Simulated assay, not measured.
Amino acid sequence: MPESPSRPVADGVLAPLPRWLRRTVAYGIAALVAAAVVAVVTVALLRVGVVAFALLAALLLTALLAPVATGLRRLGLPRAVAALAALLLLLGVPVGIGWLLYSRVMVQLEAVGPAVTAGLDRIREWLVTGPLGVDPARIDELRTSAFDAARAALPSPVAGTTTALHVLTGLLLVVFAVFFLAKDGDAMWRWFLSWVPEERRARVDGGGRLAWSTVTAYVRGTVLVALGDAVGIGLGLLVLGVPLWLSLALLTFVSAFVPIVGATIAGAAAVLVTLVTNGATDALLVLGLVLLVQQLEGNLLQPLVMSGVVKLHPLVTVSAVTVGTLLLGIAGAVLAVPVVAVGYRLVSYLAGRDHAPDDTDDERGGPDDPEGAASRRAPAEEPGPAILRGSPARR
């Protein structure tokens, strides 16, 4: 009598259980394994937090600079020269803005100082004599506590030096990585794909192109949204004659890279500065302006620019920003949403609910890939798209 095929021990143990319970156990084990993998990867990244953040920031900046490098290559510049020119542009813009702000702030501080002092005195008088009737001693106690907390939050000389060295190391690594990603990103991707088995290469290729298109669209969309917020709020502050309006507009632009939370912080700073310098009436006007700009952003600009890119519920966005902030501070707050967005798109792609970007243009070389034909003529051991150059080509 032939022996019946042996069943796995797990099947024999779970066979008496209902089918729904077996499925629950299987999914539970899979979830535990996935959580363990995520925990190990997170701990490993936190161990090398400077390197991990620098590489992720370099990817975001490369996505932002890709059109510049591509346009320069179209003009006939070599790849290295185009990448270097894009990198110099990346470094020059914040340096120029910083110098402009520094020069303006230094000039305005002398005039703003007395106004700030008078504004604080008006607020203190309103708190004491107004409807709140706060005890003056309580106000002095709160002010002293705030100064003590700020002083305690300052790092020691040794800790400050260490932090400065880490920041400098991270910035140098970002600059180094951006240059080579802009110059050789497509070759790096083809080299990576050459290690993927042939039968899975197209699947990995599609996932990589989808991830890169998500990052690229997110970064460019965020820049457009941040620019719209900064221009709207900056013009309103300028019309109201608020000192340091340019600095507040720049703060609005930078804060927009932290979704939802950043806009709230920047708006609160604008209202507070206006209250101290211009008074309560202008502060209320600025509050209305901030709310109007945020409503236009949330209901018009965000859906128009980010449609189909970041398919995340606001609760997921806030949770991601919170977790990122707890793990990596400001860096985690900035990187949380693009990382979660890419992960969601990849899971949807693997589940068959999403598809890789259309590469119709790449069949003709692509609008962002002037060397697409050369890329497709690459040797068999280096297949794949120019994924870090804008519009990747399918093998």
Rank of each mutant, 00 (worst) to 15 (best):
286 V>I: 12
243 P>W: 08
245 W>R: 07
182 A>F: 00
302 Q>I: 12
185 G>H: 04
230 A>F: 07
277 T>S: 08
241 G>W: 09
207 G>K: 13
267 G>M: 06
253 F>M: 01
225 V>P: 10
194 S>E: 01
229 D>H: 09
277 T>G: 04
182 A>P: 01
227 L>D: 00
288 G>R: 09
234 G>K: 08
288 G>C: 14
300 L>F: 15
208 G>D: 05
179 F>Y: 14
225 V>F: 10
251 L>S: 07
235 L>S: 03
197 P>S: 07
206 G>W: 09
243 P>F: 09
305 V>M: 13
272 L>C: 08
293 V>Q: 10
235 L>C: 01
272 L>N: 03
201 R>E: 06
253 F>I: 01
265 I>R: 09
206 G>A: 13
254 V>K: 05
182 A>K: 02
185 G>K: 02
278 N>Q: 14
260 I>S: 05
215 V>A: 01
248 L>I: 14
227 L>Q: 08
203 R>C: 07
287 L>T: 14
206 G>P: 13
253 F>E: 00
210 L>M: 06
255 S>C: 12
178 V>I: 11
215 V>Q: 02
264 T>D: 10
258 V>E: 03
283 A>K: 10
265 I>A: 15
292 L>K: 05
281 T>Y: 11
208 G>M: 12
284 L>F: 11
234 G>D: 03
210 L>A: 04
234 G>Q: 06
177 A>I: 02
281 T>Q: 13
197 P>T: 07
271 V>T: 11
280 A>W: 15
180 F>L: 04
214 T>W: 01
222 T>I: 03
247 S>K: 02
185 G>D: 04
269 A>S: 14
247 S>W: 10
221 G>E: 02
283 A>V: 07
235 L>R: 05
191 W>G: 10
243 P>Q: 08
267 G>F: 08
189 W>C: 02
237 L>C: 00
205 D>V: 03
282 D>V: 13
258 V>A: 10
270 A>H: 04
300 L>G: 13
221 G>L: 01
228 G>S: 14
301 L>Y: 12
187 A>K: 04
220 R>V: 00
276 V>T: 07
293 V>L: 15
210 L>W: 00
253 F>A: 03
191 W>A: 13
272 L>A: 15
281 T>E: 15
247 S>E: 10
181 L>T: 00
216 T>I: 01
201 R>Y: 07
217 A>S: 12
276 V>N: 01
302 Q>P: 00
177 A>R: 03
183 K>S: 07
295 Q>S: 13
263 A>S: 15
237 L>G: 00
293 V>D: 13
263 A>C: 11
245 W>F: 15
284 L>V: 15
214 T>V: 13
296 L>H: 10
224 L>I: 14
282 D>S: 15
269 A>Q: 03
298 G>F: 11
234 G>W: 05
274 T>V: 06
188 M>S: 05
217 A>L: 04
242 V>H: 08
242 V>A: 12
271 V>C: 11
179 F>V: 03
288 G>L: 15
213 S>Q: 04
239 V>F: 14
250 L>V: 15
262 G>R: 07
238 L>G: 09
191 W>E: 04
228 G>H: 05
184 D>V: 05
267 G>W: 11
233 I>W: 08
201 R>K: 14
